[in-house]
Design a protein around this nucleic acid. Structure first.
Lengths: 191, 191, 191, 191
DNA sequence: GATGAATGAGTTTTCATTCAT
DNA sequence: AATGAATGAAAACTCATTCAT
């Protein structure tokens, strides 16, 4: 039970960080801010997490795992009526853009740049895992066995690119148009 | 001549920032670091730039303008033997990936998130300008008048995505494969 | 109890500032000095006060409120044997001159000049409040209902003037002589 | 001629300081600001003045001497029709209040507090000189030989007090009312 | 005479981390 | 479990002063 509470509190902390970064345009997150958002003291924060880096690490894990879960849930629900359009739409949608996760995503990438290799490796591990997950859907939607790997990679690049444009608030292209373009890649191979 | 020197020193400062971000895995760049790299005192730094933000602003401008220039130079030199492959290759190459600019790019995007609207607007302005420049090349290479705008956008998203993967040191897909996939988009419309 | 300690520390800080300004001929007070006088670190200072301005603000409030309290205490104790001489003497005495508050007073006035309107308004608010308090004593001592307002104002000007002469260490006139002159104003109206 | 120019430039500098303090609500004057106002470089400033303190010193001298001159000019022009009212009015007027000199006055007083004894002594010397000058007028206006010294002192205190109220923008009492009160002091002795 | 450039010691402020209770 | 208090190292920024040209 104690352990349960510990996990609950840790989750509370992670959620606070996410919202601080994603929702409010927070400058560069501090432990004081996090503690305040959780209604706990800075001291308590250190009861649950030994360092700030540990928190950021868990935020990354949570962030990407949620992407995975949401995507897998959706694909399960729609596996029998999977059009390319709907598939791409949901990928881009779930990817980063609309769930207020763009800022978080870029923030985390930037944390990784700061020479924190543990963080970076974890990020890559999870990102690559997503690639595998993504591939399954692509095979189904595109009915294309051969190039599913590359298409999955391309999609991931585009999602990252969209995240950047999102945080810059520079709406440069609609999803529809991306979908149209992507379809061309897939369609040719379908026949 | 004095003015010339002032510009020289400012350039020196900007170059230092770029290299600090790009080459070494700098934690989060400080004015002390910049000054040391330039072999000047912090005081001198403030002689040339009133605030850190001003420095970052100029780094952005310089960063994107160099992309523009390099790209335009190349396109001029190769406008008569422009294959889609070579075009895409150079875009992705010049884009971000190989010039050690990926870290810089992400770092600057992240600066923009921190609520610095002036920075963000400048970034977008320059980014959108690049879109226009890019489009010219695409029209020539793809011989496709209609979708050049969208293709240009897509390419820019991919470049941003590549930048992220680059800073994460997570080589997920080779340029060749991206090129192959992109060609499909273009080819269909050629006929 | 925790809150009590917080107030205690804040008081400690304010007292340090006061003594730094009043006693030693401090150049222009720094947070480092304040911290050292309190035997705390600069970081701790910021635990109790968010900015230097906030400290100065509280010093003003404390400074003037102490004037009020001391004066009111005295008037209560002496309200039954209130001669004009004793009244004037205590006003000028408590006013600024002898409690080492002159430097503090001028320092604070100067802070207000630096465009800090919040500070200035607070100073005026407290100063005008003192005018009201002063008036009560004047009515009793001078037995003069009509001009008590003006006399109170005049006294306050003189106190400010004395503060300046005090910090300049330029003893130009004894209190006795001021009292003699002021009495003339009052006496005429008594009859 | 060279010497003449040097004096001119020095005057230019002093005027700049005065206006920076008096007119604009300048924070805490810097040599950069002074140089800019004079349209010269900081280097040039150091050609005319060896230190900042030297500048402040000369500003004090100029400030008080101008008070003297203006007052003496006026008294000469009006020595034959000198009423107490007009005399007091012009003293308070010339004193500090209306010539935008209040801020300068308090600023200079504050500079003296900072432990600069040379400055302080000069200020006192000039201030005491003014007392003597003032006394002459008082004797004429009040026709009161005996108390002219004390009245002069009292007036100077009031002027300093008015300066403080002026910089605090806290108009507490009109000159008229001060004059009325002061007249009472004088009148009694006249008869 | 005049100046642009450089400096270093100083200022205010921030923040991850520790620890006694 | 929880926290208020404290810290110190580092951050951005200021400014009087110097000096070669």
């Amino acid at each position: 039970m104690a352990k349960k509470m510990k996990i609950d509190m840790r989750n509370e902390i992670l959620k606070s960080v996410e919202s601080l970064i994603s929702v409010s345009g927070v400058n560069s997150i501090s432990l004081k801010d996090i503690a305040k958002t959780c209604n706990i003291s800075k001291g308590t924060l250190y009861y649950y997490y030994k360092t700030k880096d540990e928190i950021i690490f868990d935020v990354i894990v949570k962030h990407v795992q949620e992407l995975h879960t949401e995507y897998l849930d959706w694909i399960e629900r729609h596996q029998h009526d999977l059009t390319i359009e709907r598939f791409l739409s949901v990928i881009l949608y779930k990817g980063v853009k609309l769930f207020n996760r763009a800022k978080l995503h870029i923030f985390l990438v930037n944390e990784c740049i700061k020479g924190n290799d543990v963080l970076r490796n974890k990020f890559n591990e999870l990102w690559n895992k997503w690639h595998k997950i993504l591939q399954v859907g692509i095979k189904k939607a595109f009915k294309n066995e051969q190039e599913s790997e590359d298409i999955a990679y391309l999609l991931m690049l585009i999602i990252d690119g969209l995240a950047i444009q999102e945080v810059l608030q520079n709406q440069i292209i609609s999803e529809e148009r991306i979908i149209t373009l992507m379809k061309k890649i897939g369609e040719r191979d379908v026949k």
